[in-house]
């Protein structure tokens, strides 16, 4: 238990870690508020609004990964590559499903 003690050398990393969560939380709040604001106040024409919402969501996901999950370039293992590879798989599965099923829907009409 002695290694748990709050010593002087921990003070600076503590401030650093604390700041990361604060920045992440603040950015996430702002991005969420912007996304809801876009829809509630009907800012931007319809199509641009959807694009803006998607961009805000992707930005917020990156913020969460960076500041809450601490995924970065300095990891010992290939955590970032795992995330990027999973994203690729997800993109193929989701994009492919939407593409194929909407195409099928058009043909059935």
């Amino acid at each position: 238990m002695k290694s748990d003690a709050m010593t002087d050398e921990h003070v600076e990393p503590y401030a650093q870690d604390f700041r990361a969560y604060c920045i992440g939380g603040l950015l996430a709040l702002v991005l969420t508020a912007l996304a809801f604001g876009l829809v509630i106040f009907e800012i931007l024409p319809y199509f641009e609004r959807l694009i803006a919402l998607a961009v805000l969501a992707v930005t917020q996901i990156v913020v969460h990964f960076r500041y809450f999950l601490h995924i970065g370039w300095h990891s010992h293992r290939d955590d970032l590559q795992l995330v990027l590879f999973t994203s690729l798989i997800l993109f193929l599965m989701v994009g492919g499903t939407i593409w194929i099923l909407s195409n099928l829907h058009e043909r059935m009409m």
Partner: peptide, 12 residues
């Protein structure tokens, strides 16, 4: 050295 995702315990 960052060993894993999430907050690392490190020197603490």
């Amino acid at each position: 050295v960052v060993l894993h995702p999430g907050l690392n315990l490190g020197s603490a």
